[in-house]
Amino acid sequence: MGKKSRQRQRSEDPGPAADGPGARQPCPCGSGRRYKACHGSRDSSSPYVARPFEGLPAEADLVALREFVPAATAPVELAPSVENPEGRSVQLCSLLPGATPAMVRQDGSIWLGLQVQHGYGDPSRDLGAVLEEALKADPGSLVGLSAPPGDGARLQDLLADAPVTVTVHEGFDYWVADVDDADGSMAGALEAANEAAAPTVRITAVPAAYWTSMGDREYLRWVLPHSEDRVLDALARLRVLGDVSLVEGDRLIGMFRTHGLVVPVWDLPVGTGAEALEEPLDAFSARFEEALGRDDALTSDERASRAGLASRQLTIR
């Protein structure tokens, strides 16, 4: 999408999406101000985008890596139109040391961090600005943002429309896999980061589903690319049928919204593990897709079930 068309699209945007913030609600950027006085103001240089990664091939996985997967990487291809005279490769990372937005490695490759400290309303635009700077930076450079990037290229403009493969790591050892740490200067920081990372495994049966263990609890979080209304309707239908369970003893405890998508969360019996979810989630996905395709009105029981699901939602960011 060219610059003029992006500007036109934003100027014609009537405001936040239905699941976006209200004028008096806290701004999702984390500033602490009301939305109408921050990214919802008429003179805001960085309008809030409710679904920033929409249109990217791995939208749901990118949301997962940005919000709750501690250690993961995903190589991506640049669009043919992007100037890349050094022929640099680009890898998305869930988190970089110090929450750095981007690192240009000594070999010229670019690591782009998804979990960062700043937030200027449109994460896709923020990442686009950082990536463009990294393509011009010298090897060994750290690249970041200290102010809103303004209008410009977003990830949708810079990345090729190609499949993305996510690799989840047990910890952050990949940070230093090709670095000589003979003096042990990075060992302490790496150990602390690894200790803080909750064990996480990506389920292969469906896109963007992740098992995790936190303390003595296990959970499954599944980022869905469908609209919130459709997800709630489908889950309500299945819940009335008693058909939302994946394994014996689990519970669908609720869901949260983030970056315009809905993420159902299952509380799992201790000892379930990730492998035991592959077949059940594959089977549940088929039932869920069938429920998504229905367009008949909800019954009274299904409406009550839907209201119960909606009451247990949490919006983050």
Rank of each mutant, 00 (worst) to 15 (best):
G128C: 07
G128D: 01
A129S: 14
A134Y: 03
K136I: 03
D138N: 11
G140V: 01
L142V: 05
L142N: 09
V143C: 10
A147S: 13
A147I: 01
P148V: 06
G150K: 02
L155G: 01
Q156C: 11
L159N: 00
P163M: 03
P163W: 04
H169D: 03
H169F: 01
E170D: 15
W175T: 01
A177I: 10
A177V: 14
V179R: 12
D180E: 13
D181M: 03
D183H: 02
E191V: 11
A192E: 11
N194Y: 01
E195M: 11
A196L: 13
A198E: 12
P199Y: 00
V201S: 10
V201Y: 12
R202I: 02
T204R: 15
A208M: 03
Y210H: 14
T212M: 13
S213Q: 15
M214R: 15
D216A: 14
E218L: 09
Y219T: 10
Y219S: 05
R221K: 14
V223M: 11
L224T: 05
S227H: 14
E228A: 15
D229C: 00
V231E: 09
V231N: 01
L235W: 10
R237G: 09
R237S: 08
R237A: 00
R237I: 07
R239M: 12
R239H: 09
G242Y: 07
D243A: 15
S245M: 08
L246A: 06
D250I: 13
D250L: 11
I253H: 02
R257G: 15
T258H: 09
T258S: 15
H259T: 05
H259G: 04
G260I: 10
L261G: 05
V262T: 15
V265N: 00
V265P: 01
V265C: 14
L268F: 10
P269Q: 07
